[in-house]
Amino acid sequence: MFDQKNPYLPYSVIIDDIVVETEDKSLKTFKLVIEDEGIRQNWNHTPGQFAMLSVPGKGEAAIGIASSPTEKGYLLFTVSRIGSLTTALHQLPKGARIGVRGPLGNGFPVNSEFKGKNIVVIAGGYAFTTLRATIVYLLAHRQDYGKITLIYGARTPGMLLYRNELKDWEQSGLVECHITVDREAPGWNGIVGFVPAVTERVAPAPENSVAVVCGPPIMIKFTMPALEKTGWKDEQIYLSLENRMKCGLGVCGHCNVGPVYVCKDGPVFTRARVKGLPVEF
């Protein structure tokens, strides 16, 4: 639980900037600035954590934090317009005031299990958001980690998130990037194919490595055998679950997967842990 007297009350934030990420305009990145200076300066989170975004009058929704804690002074959330809250959020202009309640959940163990390891990031579609946070964090502490490999796929080139940053990472040589789209597209000279197939071709080595895999269930389902083939163990693979949430504090009962609460015990679990749970996500 985050450090606030009443964890149900969000911090007030101002929408400082809005970037339309994708060609279908269904994904926007909101840059939010916490109004209270003290809270803004003391804010800290772990990549992989989420927050409840609050549009007063409309409600709240759990959204992964897309910025890294090393990016100071603001928070990024890339939001898909899909439900009532996110639709309301998409209609707001720059300068509007909303609320942020968090950070919530556990995040990726970037300061423990990940230290000194090669990191393989496998992402599909807009599940990439907290993985952007992770990569930015890893790059800010580059010397603490081994090789960083990114396998990221979207349906079309226009559906890829953070395209400028992808280019920077690739050109800098700091991240080995394998960016793919589902089928041939005009102007696309990169890889074509689904994430599981690309993963199989890249065949990242499991020795002294961890993999973080986020994406639609179908992508995860077929990526797992691709990793198994090259000898990956369930303990090395990190997944981030999502379920409907209300409180984000492990009380309201909505997000449970068997005995665990995605909001409090997760959203990050190893594949080994997920295998011991009922399939309720």
Binding site: Y8, P56, G57, K58, G59, C247, C252, G253
Partner: peptide, 10 residues
């Protein structure tokens, strides 16, 4: 049974 929902009303 203690589960709850949160809703805004204006």
């Amino acid at each position: 049974c203690y589960c709850f929902d949160i809703q805004d009303e204006v």
